[in-house]
Write a protein that binds this DNA or RNA. Sequence first.
DNA 1: GTCTATAAGAAGATAGAC
DNA 2: GTCTATCTTCTTATAGAC
Lengths: 231, 231
Amino acid sequence: MTEQNKSDPSRQQLSPPPSGQPKVKVRPGRIRQRNREQILAAAEKEFSSKGFGATTVQQIADRAGLPKSNVLYYFSNKKRMYYALMDGIMGRWNDVFSNVRPEDDPATTLAGFIQVKMEMSRTHPLASRLFAMEIIQGAPVLKEYLSTSMKDWVRERAMVIQQWIDTGRMGNVDPVQLIHLIWSSTQHYADFQVQILAIEEKEAYTKKDFKHAAEFLTQVILRGCGLEVPE
Amino acid sequence: MTEQNKSDPSRQQLSPPPSGQPKVKVRPGRIRQRNREQILAAAEKEFSSKGFGATTVQQIADRAGLPKSNVLYYFSNKKRMYYALMDGIMGRWNDVFSNVRPEDDPATTLAGFIQVKMEMSRTHPLASRLFAMEIIQGAPVLKEYLSTSMKDWVRERAMVIQQWIDTGRMGNVDPVQLIHLIWSSTQHYADFQVQILAIEEKEAYTKKDFKHAAEFLTQVILRGCGLEVPE
DNA sequence: GTCTATAAGAAGATAGAC
DNA sequence: GTCTATCTTCTTATAGAC
């Protein structure tokens, strides 16, 4: 533990010395590829259920079905695994959320945004929880990302929403707060899964549960913005 | 680390052997009281920013300004401190949220609920984050609480909301989902503070920020339920 | 590329002097 | 009640045999 260990004060950045692999001149290597993926999958499970500091390399190795030193051969240290995971999450995030233009329909666009975020909560709950823990813990790794890429992303969307408001195409609500609202309410189904399942007396989510929740959120949030819910 | 340590499989319960203090027949003891509070305050800070497993007793002791063994004299082990904190959080939670009756006004009641939860996010962000981490990590300590007290609490409120809907006093929305929505959207301002501050390019929240956010949420959620926003 | 063995340090907890 | 010294265990990470 003690993530703030001896090592470099040059953390805080995504992908440190990005050269983790030995520079052997071998093509991709099926085994290498497979092992890396297994390790990352295991690391995601462990990190997302205990956080970085409480997870041991041994636990990751056990779950990946490899000896610890093999894991450290691929990723040289614990931090590098964490960075790699964060990189993956942010990459996926950037890919999924397409652009928005002022001429788009507000209701359809917002409904689509809710849809996509709910789909991410459903299909990638571990990534969601990992991200949530990183943020709750003060975003030691992602702070930079938040105040650059993510800030810009929000600001751009907020400007389009503001244009919709100014042209009378939706009710007058704070666009940034609206994005926070969509973010938090959809995220919740992944992050607070245990709480929701306990309250609803279920063992696990079904696809239907998510559909129902997405419809609820779409209805309430769109109406709350003075919009008609699209078909 | 390794919270799933050697010890008893009889965890999962709030307050284990609740007798943590030496049974000396001394009245409350000002110093004892003060030290306990200092330790708990320090523990809340540490646990809420790193989680249980990654926090060391040494860190708590340092923050409390006491030697490690003195801390362990008061709480005998790390788990007991965590239990004590969770107990406090749940106790406060139960106190704050008063009852709701079918004859109450839906808009005022829901607005009040949003208000109170936002106030908790503002005044007790550490407790909020500690709770969030506990849930994200699968609620090892609070699982029991979730599927008993909290479940009942939600079910009771949901029944009242359903009555409001049935008597045409508000729009037809799933009451349980509505509670999830209020919960998640208000919680978010405490738990994802760093993200929000980064996006809004601020150093810290002001009281005004919370007022603004509370008004936004009240407006959107109430309107989303077909309610007029009360003054 | 894989894995055993181990170095070097830090963790939780306790004993016992003050 | 307080605190130093210490026991035991577990941690990350590396060295080096296969």
